[in-house]
């Protein structure tokens, strides 16, 4: 396997995506405005404790930002007729998929890092295990960027359709993942549903980093997120390969 070719291809694809897609309106709306408005809607006027709310808010921000770039890229490229040309360059479908994931992950990392720095410095929140937050942010960015890549896989060359589909998938997840109701307060069906969502495990790691305790073991959280990442990428590859000819 040509590792240098793979890495170089992933880097160029990611650079292309950053240059072209970061400033597209859907990324701004679905990646930045949505989590901001949700935060305002749930936080303002409810006298919630920031220490309790922050892990969920950070996880939600990372979830939305990291998964907002991926769904846009492939439909946009197919619509603009650049996708076929991209496939003719010295890259493979897997390299394109990884490049899209890296671009999404970097977007999530940058925005979340800014918010973390802002909250820690301005609001003076205390973080029990800062290193865990770093690992959580990195891992969460990759997992949800992979989700973004999967959401781009259906055979559509209409970005708005894909963005609608991605909202349909992402919105329910934030309500079952312990963001607005802390995981420790969930029980029965609520907790069962929460375990099905990858976002739950990110919220849990952020909670551990902030308070020093969590519902699940942090190592388990990391393993589950890694497993989700691999599964999302494998399914994305399969679906994209199947839909390769559609929209060329």
């Amino acid at each position: 396997m040509d590792i240098s070719g793979l890495l170089s291809g992933v880097a160029v694809i990611a650079e292309k995506n950053i240059r072209i897609y970061y400033n597209k309106p859907p990324v701004f709306i679905f990646g930045l405005l949505f989590p901001l408005f949700l935060f305002i809607a749930f936080y303002i006027g409810r006298s919630m404790d920031m220490q309790t709310f922050l892990p969920g808010f950070l996880a939600m921000t990372l979830f939305f930002t990291a998964s907002s770039v991926g769904p846009l890229i492939t439909p946009w490229e197919k619509r603009d007729r650049t996708f076929e040309r991209l496939l003719s360059y010295p890259v493979t479908l897997e390299i394109i998929l990884l490049g899209d994931t890296v671009a999404g992950a970097l977007f999530g990392l940058i925005i979340t890092a800014i918010i973390i720095a802002g909250t820690v410095i301005l609001l003076k929140v205390s973080v029990a295990v800062p290193l865990v937050w770093c690992v959580a942010t990195l891992l969460g960015a990759i997992t949800f960027a992979s989700l973004g890549a999967l959401l781009a896989s259906p055979a559509s060359e209409t970005p708005s359709n894909i963005m609608m589909l991605s909202s349909l998938v992402r919105f329910p997840l934030i309500f079952i993942s312990g963001i607005f109701v802390p995981l420790s307060s969930l029980g029965g069906v609520g907790l069962y549903l929460a375990t099905l969502s990858p976002l739950t495990y990110l919220v849990d790691i952020f909670s551990f980093g902030m308070h020093g305790y969590s519902v699940f073991n942090p190592v388990t959280d990391c393993i589950v997120l890694l497993a989700w990442t691999v599964a999302l990428l494998v399914v994305s590859r399969t679906v994209q390969r199947r839909n390769l000819t559609k929209g060329l």
């Binding site: 291809g9 292309k16 072209i20 040309r85 003719s88 360059y89």
Partner: peptide
């Protein structure tokens, strides 16, 4: 990757990135 390095391709309907300039497209 090795085989594609030897090729140049102009697909039928495909175009280049409209958000970039000619120089940026060529650089990419």
């Amino acid at each position: 990757l090795m085989a594609k390095m030897l090729m140049g391709v102009i697909p039928e309907h495909s175009t280049i990135y409209g958000d970039l300039t000619p120089v940026q497209n060529l650089n990419l």
